[in-house]
Every structure is written in structure tokens, then in C-alpha cells.
């Protein structure tokens, strides 16, 4: 172990992260054919269509209008099908420059079996980078309708005391849209994980 290399240090993505991660969305067109992760669904993607959206708030309650959000999830059967043309499980979106709202159109993931025999309830990894964030913030979004199963989830069980668990549960909205606001500080601070 002592011969292991050290992980490279993280640095903030800064305010101009869009140039590298989603240039078309920030007006740099004609370089990359498309912004990676901008569209997660294909016509043939199996599964229940959902949307998830939210706003990231700083400690002053101001929305982050310069963040980039990535999500990573299993398919409807709880498998990570990274090479599938129908659904890769990964998406990327920019917070709106005025409102800070970000949105993904995706499918609801299935429960994910682990090698040790436990099963994780449906969840979506949410990863945030922005100016002022020195190392990407890693959280998970869970679904309110899976409440009964969540008591047995091996990751949610780590959130002790349980008073902050609710920060990981999205709120249902109309048209199969889930709202998942993220709070970086304050009494509603979202749970972030050291994965």
C-alpha cells in the first residue's frame, strides 16, 4: 500500500466550467457536435419516464446559477448498462443562468443488487461542481414512493442520526417530475457522501 500513488488534488471547476463541459449550451458552437450527457433518453429507452429538477442553494439562500450537475443511475432493472445505446445512465445539465434551476429527463431506476446480497432502493447519484466548490459534492436522490423500502437500504442506514435523511428524498411534482433542491449549508443542508 505504501507504494501507492496519491490521488491528484481536486480544484474548483470555477465559473466557466460550461466552456469545457457543455460548450454548446454556453454559446460555443461548432466545436463539439453535441454536449455530452445533454440527452439521456432515446425513443427505445425502456422504463418509466420521469424528470428530476431542482435548485442548489448556498448558505445565503441564493441559487447557484453557475453550477454543473451530473447524474448517474441504473436502468429500469437496476443494472448499470454503460455500453447500452438505449440508456447510458449518465447525464449532465447546467443550472439556469438566471434561476439556477437544472433539469433531467430520464427514467426511474430499478433497485440495485449489491455483491454482498443486499439491495439498494432506487436512487440517482447527483454530483455537483461549481465556483466555490473545491471538490465535487456527491449525494444521492431517492424517491418518495419507495419510503417503505428505504429503511433497509445499506447506504441510507449510514445516515445517523436519521434527522437529515429527508434531505435525500425528492418531492413529487406534477407530470412525473421530482423536485430535488440541494442546500449547501444551513438547517436544511443536504447530506453529502464520502464515497
Amino acid at each position: 500500500m505504501s507504494d501507492d500513488l496519491h490521488e491528484t488534488a481536486s480544484q474548483t471547476a470555477g465559473p466557466y466550467v460550461h466552456i469545457g463541459c457543455m460548450p454548446n449550451a454556453c454559446g460555443i458552437t461548432g466545436v463539439f457536435a453535441e454536449d455530452l450527457g445533454a440527452q439521456m433518453l432515446q425513443a427505445e429507452t425502456p422504463g418509466q419516464r420521469i424528470a428530476i429538477e431542482g435548485v442548489i442553494f448556498d448558505g445565503d439562500g441564493a441559487p447557484l446559477t453557475d453550477a454543473v450537475v451530473e447524474i448517474w443511475q441504473a436502468d429500469e432493472q437496476g443494472r448499470y448498462t454503460t455500453r447500452s445505446a438505449a440508456f447510458s445512465g449518465w447525464g449532465r445539465a447546467a443550472a439556469d443562468a438566471e434561476t439556477g434551476r437544472w433539469r433531467f429527463e430520464t427514467i426511474k431506476p430499478g433497485a440495485v443488487p449489491c455483491p454482498d446480497g443486499t439491495v439498494m432502493v432506487p436512487h440517482i447519484t447527483v454530483w455537483i461542481i461549481a465556483r466555490g466548490i473545491n471538490i465535487g459534492l456527491h449525494t444521492r436522490m431517492y424517491f418518495p414512493e419507495d419510503y417503505d423500502m428505504q429503511a433497509h437500504d445499506p447506504v441510507l442506514a449510514r445516515v445517523q442520526p436519521t434527522g437529515r435523511l429527508h434531505t435525500l428524498i425528492a418531492e413529487p411534482g406534477p407530470d412525473a417530475t421530482y423536485n430535488f433542491n440541494i442546500y449547501l449549508q444551513g438547517p436544511k443542508e443536504t447530506v453529502f457522501f464520502d464515497v
Binding site: 448556498d58 448558505g59 441504473a74 440495485v112 439498494m120 457522501f193
Partner: peptide
């Protein structure tokens, strides 16, 4: 204003 105040919660690496 953009730094979480709670410690990150450690978790096992899952699939």
C-alpha cells in the same frame, strides 16, 4: 457560502 458544514457521511463503495 458554498461549503457544506456537516462532515461527509462515509459509505461503502457500491456498484
Amino acid at each position: 457560502m458554498r461549503s457544506p458544514e456537516h462532515a461527509r457521511i462515509s459509505m461503502p463503495a457500491t456498484p
